[in-house]
């Protein structure tokens, strides 16, 4: 055993401790989801003594009808965000035109507007556009708001690419949109996946906006559907957490297939200020 190995072991141990602590909420969610109410009250931090699958049956009944809504709304939002932000990010990064910096900062400064402040004005706009109780009531504001950070990330990535790639295409006579499709998109594929996942997770877990704009039960997203388990008169955490787990199954499936790209996207993104 020399110093080198001790150092390596120390590094591994530290990381494992950090990972265990980081994963703890996930673990807590899992064990709580199979506890009965009695056990949750008496023993909410320990392992379940009796596994109660009924929590999942109950949660499945509540969640089932809403998963489709969440899938539709989040997917459409993600497609629109990825398309709009990749194009706009590319334009701002690779072309010079009058007002470029002004317009770019005009977009980025929207990150600084507190959400609660705009809740009622945004609601009234959505209502005046006749979008209430339609899926667009969520999709359009999510797309609009989601673009902002996505544009920033993609702009950051596109700026870091070497100019020769684009120059060669220009010499060949390719137009703005052709270069976008043939060069910008393929090169930034992992970053686009990152953006997609971030917005999929973000919109999937949003509660307050769909709660306010969608009252038709058949259009509700999954997170709002789960909330029926948690009310003042009726508190039962087992099914609630089982519901959260079921609701995150699509996210987990998505992750299994795209995790590699997500990490790669952030790792290759050169995202900085």
């Amino acid at each position: 055993m020399n110093r080198f190995y001790i150092g390596e072991i120390f590094k591994h141990l530290s990381i494992i401790v950090l990972i265990l602590l980081t994963l703890y909420p996930f673990f807590f969610l899992l064990i709580s989801s199979v506890k009965s109410h009695e056990e949750f009250t008496h023993n909410f931090l320990g392992l379940p003594q009796l596994i109660r699958w009924a929590n999942y049956t109950a949660a499945w009944k509540a969640v089932r009808q809403y998963i489709y809504n969440s899938l539709i709304m989040s997917s459409l939002t993600v497609v629109m965000v990825v398309f709009l932000s990749s194009y706009v990010g590319y334009i701002f990064a690779r072309y010079k035109f009058p007002g470029r910096e002004f317009l770019f900062y005009a977009i980025i400064s929207l990150l600084m507007i507190p959400g609660a402040l705009t809740l009622i004005p945004t609601f009234i706009i959505v209502k005046n556009l006749g979008l209430l109780n339609t899926r667009w009531a969520c999709i359009l504001p999510w797309t609009s708001g989601g673009q902002i950070f996505a544009i920033f990330v993609i702009h950051s990535f596109m700026s870091s690419l070497p100019e020769e790639l684009f120059e060669a295409a220009r010499v060949d006579g390719a137009g703005i949109f052709q270069i976008y499709v043939k060069i910008a998109v393929p090169l930034s594929y992992p970053t686009l996946v990152t953006i997609a996942i971030m917005h999929f997770v973000g919109t999937w877990n949003d509660i307050i906006w769909p709660l306010v704009t969608i009252t038709k039960p058949e259009l509700r997203p999954v997170t709002v559907g789960i909330m029926a388990f948690n009310s003042a008169y009726y508190q039962n955490y087992g099914p609630l957490f089982a519901g959260y787990i079921l609701a995150s199954v699509p996210l987990i499936i998505l992750f299994i297939f795209t995790m590699r790209f997500y990490i790669q996207g952030l790792l290759s993104g050169a995202i900085k200020m």
Binding site: S85, P98, I125
Partner: peptide, 30 residues
């Protein structure tokens, strides 16, 4: 130069239309 870049400006319209409706207007209103 603005005229020369008209296609760029035009292609930014969807993004800014969304932003004006769902972000700028509520923010400015507030």
């Amino acid at each position: 130069s603005v005229y020369k870049n008209k296609f760029i400006y035009l292609s930014l319209v969807p993004t800014f239309a969304l932003l004006l409706t769902f972000n700028y207007y509520p923010a400015i209103n507030a």
